[in-house]
């Protein structure tokens, strides 16, 4: 931990970065995001199995971006990112939301995080995204810490659920999602925590004309969740933050993951994995399948 703190402190002291976005411990089994501009505060930084938040969400926030600009120069933002969070950063770079040169990625060799704060770290309590994770080492970074360790083994319950839903007919599947979406209270925590939900003004907030009903009744909830699913297809990197943030426990990542599977099958594309390839929707290939056109 000292390595991370010293490194972050030096970055701030040498004015290489304007701020360090990282994690601080709040209780034994809970961390929370912290935005550090004062080098002395770097002593609060931690990295462990309780660093659940995907901090990439802060990279597009106007108030965080404003920290980068001082009178005489523009500085970078340093971010502590798990390898999976780096996928989100890559997606943001691809979508021109931040320049690679404006972000200093401090990453770790990662062996997984818990599914929720307060849990012990073991196979039973592993976050769903860690179970299927293939990126224990970050694909892009400016500095890496931590030793490679084995991720605990666990069954992929979310894939099982997707397979189970696949077997249902469309009416039954509709009933499943109806009962899930009925719970939605439209607090938009799913949108707030999503690094790829960076629209300055979300379509749901537009009132003239109103495309998406703001009421959290069945039609309003379906409209929101379906728009969300489509807008994130080919863009969602599978960080699972929406699932974690939902106060009503709606399994949102089932939808995102299923859409990601579709995108992979059709276009052999996985979001946030390469800075060299263009975005899925920003790229047209004559060889693309026509199946997607309705």
């Amino acid at each position: 931990m000292d390595e991370l703190r010293n490194y972050a402190r030096e970055l701030l002291e040498k004015e290489e970065v304007a701020a360090v976005i990282g994690y601080q411990q709040v209780t034994e089994k809970r961390t929370k995001p912290i935005v550090i501009t004062d080098p002395a505060e770097t002593s609060r930084l931690v990295f462990n199995e309780y660093c659940l938040n995907n901090l990439a969400v802060y990279l597009t926030k106007a108030r965080i971006r404003s920290l980068m600009r001082t009178k005489d120069k523009t500085m970078k933002l340093a971010i502590v990112a798990k390898p999976c969070d780096v996928h989100s950063i890559v997606a943001l770079i691809q979508e021109n939301q931040i320049h690679r040169n404006d972000v200093h990625i401090i990453s770790f060799n990662c062996h997984g995080v818990v599914k929720d704060f307060g849990c012990d770290f073991n196979g039973d309590n592993l976050a769903a995204k860690c179970i299927k994770c293939e990126t224990h080492k970050p694909l892009y970074f400016d500095k890496i810490f931590g030793e490679e360790k084995q991720t605990p083994k666990a069954g992929d319950a979310s894939l099982e659920k997707i397979n189970e839903l696949e077997k249902l007919n469309s009416k039954e599947r509709f009933e499943f999602f109806k009962s899930e979406f009925d719970k939605c209270i439209k607090c938009y925590a799913c949108r707030a925590v999503c690094p790829l939900c960076y629209c300055q003004r979300c379509i749901t907030d537009k009132a003239i004309p109103r495309w998406i009903e703001s009421s959290s009744h069945q039609r309003g909830n379906f409209s929101w969740n379906i728009v969300r699913a489509f807008h994130l297809s080919g863009r969602c990197t599978g960080c699972g933050e929406c699932d974690r943030a939902c106060p009503m426990d709606i399994p949102l990542s089932l939808i995102n993951r299923r859409m990601a599977m579709e995108v992979k099958d059709l276009f052999s594309f996985v979001s946030g994995r390469s800075l060299e390839t263009p975005t899925l929707v920003g790229n047209f290939d004559k060889k693309d399948s026509d199946e997607i056109f309705m």
Partner: peptide
């Protein structure tokens, strides 16, 4: 506080 809060309404709705 404003730097960290993500502006959802989870707190208000629960």
């Amino acid at each position: 506080i404003g730097n960290v809060c993500l502006s959802c309404a989870q707190c208000a709705f629960v």
